[in-house]
């Protein structure tokens, strides 16, 4: 019999056959004696059990990797977000056809693209007219000609940061290194770093044109979801 289970520890709801429930919660790893159960009636609107989710803990040790609610990320900054994936190609027509046919991506060349070796931008799910995802928890990204940087580094992700200079300094302080220094492309600032662990990243500095009202920015309204842990300074304009 299919039931709806709600984890008492983290509030995660999932449906499963009562003979095949996972031994630990798929969200928080709590043992299954933490599950509350009710009949699955085919519609979450008919759900009767509700568990309040845990709340972010402002003073939590960030090195503690036991389960917790993710930290509060303040408004008016997108620092640290992985915003794009980057996939190299050898034959752009072959790679473009692969992702369009197998995964249903919508792929376009960016403006002024080199027709022989274009930079391609890929929508991998629902999006807004400005080609930003409209649904949380997935990413758009690029197909680009194969290239690697000094040391053979081949960054696969674009991380948005407040300030490239400050981020590079922090990266070097904590064991990373600069792969390609700050450069301007199409009026925007980039750099390439690696973290000392085998991961390289493009850094993209948040442009001055951001209004913080974009769906992909964290607005004050969404921030207030965590009002109980929001400090006044986090809401103040930068």
């Amino acid at each position: 019999m299919e039931k709806l289970y709600t984890c008492y520890n983290c509030s995660f709801p999932f449906k499963a056959d009562e003979g095949a429930v996972p031994a630990t919660c798929p969200s928080c790893d709590a043992s299954k004696d933490q599950y509350l159960s009710e009949p699955w009636l085919g519609d979450m609107g008919k759900r009767r059990l509700h568990v309040d989710p845990p709340e972010p803990e402002p003073d939590r040790d960030p090195m503690d990797t036991s389960y917790h609610h993710p930290k509060f990320f303040p408004a008016r900054t997108r620092h640290g977000r992985i915003r794009r994936f980057v996939l190299p190609y050898d034959d752009f027509e072959e790679s473009k056809a692969f992702y369009a046919d197998v995964f249903g991506w919508d792929i376009v060349a960016v403006d002024d693209a080199d027709s022989a070796a274009p930079l391609l931008f890929c929508a991998t799910g629902p999006g807004n007219p400005n080609w930003e995802p409209s649904v949380p928890s997935f990413s758009y990204g690029y197909l680009r000609p194969r290239q690697s940087y000094a040391g053979g580094h081949d960054p696969r992700f674009v991380v948005e940061v407040d300030d490239i200079d400050a981020t590079v300094a922090k990266a070097e302080e904590f064991g990373g290194s600069l792969v390609k220094g700050k450069y301007v492309e199409d009026g925007r600032l980039f750099a390439v770093i690696e973290d000392g662990e085998g991961n390289a990243f493009y850094l993209w500095q948040t442009p001055d044109s951001v209004t913080w009202e974009e769906p992909e920015s964290q607005t004050l309204a969404t921030t207030r979801r965590f009002a109980q842990v929001t400090r006044a300074r986090d809401l103040a304009p930068r």
Binding site: R83, R84, V86, V108, V110, D111, L119, F121, N130, W131, E132, Y140, R144, P155, V158, E185, D186, G187, R188, F190, V192, Y202, W204
Partner: peptide, 8 residues
Amino acid sequence: MPSLTNDV
């Protein structure tokens, strides 16, 4: 790395 997002 060329431009991002709204430059498409």
